[in-house]
Design a protein around this nucleic acid. Structure first.
Lengths: 194, 194
DNA sequence: TCTGCCATGTAAGCCGTTACATGATTTT
DNA sequence: AAAATCATGTAACGGCTTACATGGCAGA
């Protein structure tokens, strides 16, 4: 099974709700997700092409979609059954790199389509990734404090603070997720915690 | 005058303090600056080579640096006069893209070598860059609120918060910088501590 | 001795942007 | 009628990582 890159996953998720054409996909990726602030067509169209070739989506021109008439040259993309299946598989796994900086945002934005256990695994995976980062940054800060000027120190202090806040955010989300799960179903004592 | 990329600038700044060999440069870039968390040798060595070719730095093998004897195959890089000049020029300008995400950190880490007026211009440039981002993110949040689920909204809310904090941080720094300039006299507020 | 870190470098490939090329539709 | 925006695509190029290739030095 070919693995799905972040961009493809994002597109899959986007098309799951409704067929869209390339131009719209780009705009939505830019406004709805963090990572693709301004994805270029030079990336998008080839990606769509690859996905068509892989049988995940189909391309169909929509002529005269509206009363007026013409409206040539617009291509709507929609998921195939394989595409739906691939998306479902992806959403069911917290595997590989769902907690990379970019991938995390994309996964998170699809949390309503993700089951609770997987959501929790992703949040925790992300948390422990950040915890590692926290340690590194912290060590860096110590070293910098000894050997460097106030500005450099401040830069690192601020970097540390940023990561700390991120962890706090995740802690809140994890807590929410846990209490929602407990609520749904009385006797849930989910497995290993941090 | 050839323009200096971020990596070269960081190296220039690093070598301004003392000669270093490539391996050390890499480690320091990783621990002292944000943007180069784990710069690969595949990027570093070619960059050093380019800089030697451009006459900004020189490479010299250090044999028997220490009592023991041998210690072959270490190459120390140090700034040439041209390199020093280039660094000075770069540090005097707040031009081009000193407020890009990556470049900003590098410029900031050299603030002690930067004059007060330039520091202020960079901080303000960065601030207004973030202010633009703030607006975009804010608009995105509104749109998402109307059309999307709670998770997606939360993702955007958190993204907004992050940028807001960044702006607040800059505001504090700008304020400090201003009061330091006003008071070459009494009430100097040095760069922030914890 | 063998493992792990120090140290330098090259080649291939990935992933993305920029610039280019084209044309339709909508708004002013 | 012009300008802005919608819409699709390709080709060239850039920068960075990965994988490879090589070898010295230190301590277990």
């Amino acid at each position: 099974m070919a693995k799905t890159d972040v961009l493809s996953l994002a597109i899959l998720g986007m098309l799951a709700e409704q067929p869209l054409h390339g131009y719209q996909i780009r705009k939505r990726l830019g406004s709805e997700l963090g990572p693709f602030r301004a994805l270029s067509y030079g990336s998008l169209y080839p990606a769509l092409k690859r996905m068509v070739a892989a049988g995940l989506i189909t391309a169909s021109a929509d002529y005269e979609a509206r009363p007026g008439g013409s409206r040539r040259s617009r291509i709507s993309y929609r998921l195939t059954e394989d595409g739906e299946q691939r998306l479902a598989d992806e959403l069911a796994s917290a595997g590989a790199s769902s907690w990379d900086d970019d991938a995390f945002d994309v996964r998170f934005s699809m949390f309503t389509k993700t089951d609770s256990a997987t959501r929790l695994r992703i949040l925790e995976g992300r948390r422990s990734r950040l915890a590692e980062r926290l340690e590194e940054v912290n060590e860096g800060l110590q070293r910098v404090r000894e050997r460097h000027d106030a500005y450099t120190t401040e830069l690192h202090r601020h970097g540390l603070e940023r990561v700390e806040r991120e962890v706090e955010w995740l802690d809140r989300l994890i807590e929410n997720e846990r209490s929602a799960t407990r609520g749904d179903n009385p006797s849930t004592a989910s497995a290993g915690n941090n």
